[in-house]
Simulated assay, not measured.
Amino acid sequence: MNLKHKYLFFFVLFLIVAISFRGTAQTEDVKFTAKQAVYLEVGGNAGRYAINYGRIIHQKGKLKLNASAGFSMFHDRLNAKTTWLPVVPVEISALYGKSNHHLELGMGVTSYLTRRLGFDSETFQTTDKVVFDAGIPLRIGYRYQKPEGGFFFRAGYTPIINFPTGGGEEWSFEPRFAGLSIGKSF
């Protein structure tokens, strides 16, 4: 490791330690009275966008457990034919923090319909069919939510593990996803 990388490493280490001391300076846990949230997520678990509802289902000290579900519709245009396909992301996440600022870790299942082109080797014709597909989104991110409710924001890295359903052939990992959510907690 050259000198430049050592300085960068120690600077990042210093920032992490400084942030952790700042996070422990809060003295008392705050109970969340606004346990529900409605928000728009761009990117994230659904891939493009989704309208979501979330609820804090358990809280103890700094730890809160949240369950959420959403809905979205995507259009797929193929051969001058447009098909609307539903997407349903469901997620369980853990929030760690005392008041407004939280580390969020979670995972879920996103089920969706998609179109697949097939080929019939006997008739030499292509087939266009709608099939069920699903993925397992993971989440690590930041969440801003006031205990008493109001403005809600979160940002996260959300890679997706696709599993073989609906004609898919093998498991795959898609690391290039992230999401932003804005809404209201109440």
Rank of each mutant, 00 (worst) to 15 (best):
M1G: 14
K4S: 06
H5N: 12
Y7H: 11
Y7P: 06
F9H: 08
F14E: 03
F14I: 07
S20K: 01
S20C: 05
S20A: 12
R22S: 14
A25F: 01
Q26G: 05
Q26P: 00
T27A: 09
D29I: 00
T33N: 06
T33V: 15
A34Q: 00
Q36M: 10
A37R: 11
V38W: 15
V38G: 14
L40Q: 10
L40F: 08
E41V: 11
V42S: 07
G43P: 13
G44R: 05
N45V: 10
G47H: 08
G47P: 05
R48T: 15
R48Q: 13
Y49A: 10
A50V: 02
G54Q: 05
R55Y: 06
I56K: 04
H58N: 12
K60H: 07
G61F: 04
K64M: 11
K64E: 04
L65V: 14
L65K: 03
N66M: 15
N66G: 08
A67D: 04
G70D: 06
S72L: 07
F74V: 11
F74H: 11
H75N: 14
H75V: 11
R77Y: 12
R77D: 14
L78F: 14
A80G: 11
K81Y: 08
T83P: 00
T83F: 10
L85A: 03
L85Y: 04
L85I: 14
L85K: 10
V88T: 07
P89M: 10
V90M: 12
E91D: 13
E91P: 12
I92P: 04
L95E: 12
L95I: 07
G97L: 03
G97M: 02
S99R: 14
H101N: 11
H101M: 05
L103Y: 09
L105R: 00
G106H: 02
G106K: 02
G108P: 08
V109N: 09
T110C: 14
Y112F: 15
L113R: 13
R116L: 07
G118Q: 00
F119K: 00
D120Y: 00
S121T: 13
E122K: 01
Q125I: 13
Q125E: 15
Q125L: 13
T126Q: 10
T127W: 09
K129L: 05
V130F: 07
V131S: 05
A134M: 13
A134L: 09
I136R: 05
P137R: 03
R139C: 09
R139F: 09
I140P: 01
Y142P: 04
R143I: 03
R143A: 11
Q145I: 14
K146E: 09
P147N: 09
E148F: 08
E148N: 05
G149F: 06
G149M: 03
G150Y: 01
G150F: 00
F152E: 08
F152N: 02
F152S: 02
F153K: 02
G156V: 05
I161T: 05
N162E: 12
F163A: 02
F163C: 04
G167H: 00
E170T: 08
W171L: 08
S172K: 01
S172A: 09
E174G: 07
P175Y: 12
P175G: 10
R176H: 14
R176Y: 15
F177T: 09
L180A: 00
L180C: 01
S181W: 00
I182H: 00
I182N: 00
K184H: 03
